[in-house]
Design a protein around this nucleic acid. Sequence first.
DNA 1: CGACGAGTTGACCCCTCGGTCAAGGAACGG
DNA 2: CCGTTCCTTGACCGAGGGGTCAACTCGTCG
Lengths: 216, 216
Amino acid sequence: MAATDDTPGRDSPRQHTEQGKERKQQLVEAAMDLFAARGYAATRIADICEAAGVAKGLFYWYFPTKHDLFAELVRSMRQRLRRAQAASLDPGADALTHIRQGVEASLLFMAEHASYFALLQVERTDPHLAAVLHEGSDVYLRDVLAHIREAQRDGQIADTDPTLLALGVLGAVSSFSNAWRNGRIELSAAELAAFVGDWVVRALGETSLIEPAHTT
Amino acid sequence: MAATDDTPGRDSPRQHTEQGKERKQQLVEAAMDLFAARGYAATRIADICEAAGVAKGLFYWYFPTKHDLFAELVRSMRQRLRRAQAASLDPGADALTHIRQGVEASLLFMAEHASYFALLQVERTDPHLAAVLHEGSDVYLRDVLAHIREAQRDGQIADTDPTLLALGVLGAVSSFSNAWRNGRIELSAAELAAFVGDWVVRALGETSLIEPAHTT
DNA sequence: CGACGAGTTGACCCCTCGGTCAAGGAACGG
DNA sequence: CCGTTCCTTGACCGAGGGGTCAACTCGTCG
């Protein structure tokens, strides 16, 4: 399953036992909560440690810097979101449906991990962090783009610039999810997901409703 | 025209001459550029002063704290945006058109003041700043809400929860404007404004196209 | 001219916070 | 019982940066 940090020897001299991994996880979780509540800059390492009930020095046993903790958090969550999206796609369905499903899955995932996404909404400030955040953000765009192109080939949506449409989809997902997280929307996550699915499909200009037969 | 800070005596002991007001403006503008480029936290007061070509101590002649400068910036820009929106409304037009016009005016305004809105997109981190930012953000929502309710009365858009729809409109405006600012959209500001106007109207579900006669 | 207030300077204070370190456990293998 | 490796501690360091201050300038009024 992966990745860059529990591969044993490599180049980090750090070797973690079971207990060690638990501690690390505790720190990550404490950090996520605090970051979400106060923002990255306003969260001191001392706070994270206090929340996790350990001494400050221990932080640096598990993470080289504060920034590295953040990067680890971001990368792991991005991976999980993409998995959730992929899992939501009904293999038999058409492209427009896939977009709707992806949108709904994203909203649900964001609702479930609200505190994390509250953090993201907020943390493009620091150039270092922004780099980590942007580093993989295009993958979402590419995913949506592919679906939009397909839907256009099938005549399901109008022939506008697909990038623009894709940005609209991502924008809708993130802004509704933000609004929900900030308590501006009363709906349950599932209801919101359904609404945003509809909203996006409408905005994409579901031509089939207006002209059921498509010639191109 | 107005407002809270050139009223002479009130409760601040500070009295500014013409020269003083110019200096203050220089500082505000330098700050805006730097905030936009690096974010609030990463901009030192020393930087602002250097950019404005004055000594650091002078900053505190004009502003009690860094935060106050920020607040002044935010409030003044919010006022200007709302004026631009109001000015864009064609008095004779219907509600849905008003929404479109407001959306377009917002996009144009945000394009014109890109560096400022880049800052906003970014600066909800600090609780203090967030307070200033949120403090007046509902006025936009209320404006859109009013138009949406009217459009619903006129049968122009579907009878969904108006708050949800209004949030969608605001979300579309801000997310497209962000994307444009980040260079992800190649269009001119005017083209983008027109596109987003269409996008929003479509998402609102312009029922008139589908069922030209409305009964309720 | 002297007084007074706006404007301006840069050295300085001081606190916060990321990061370091030396010292000490605890678990385990030999 | 010794060595080794992982784990944990809290005192400490140092830089960075917000905010202060005493002093100096400049224009204006009496």
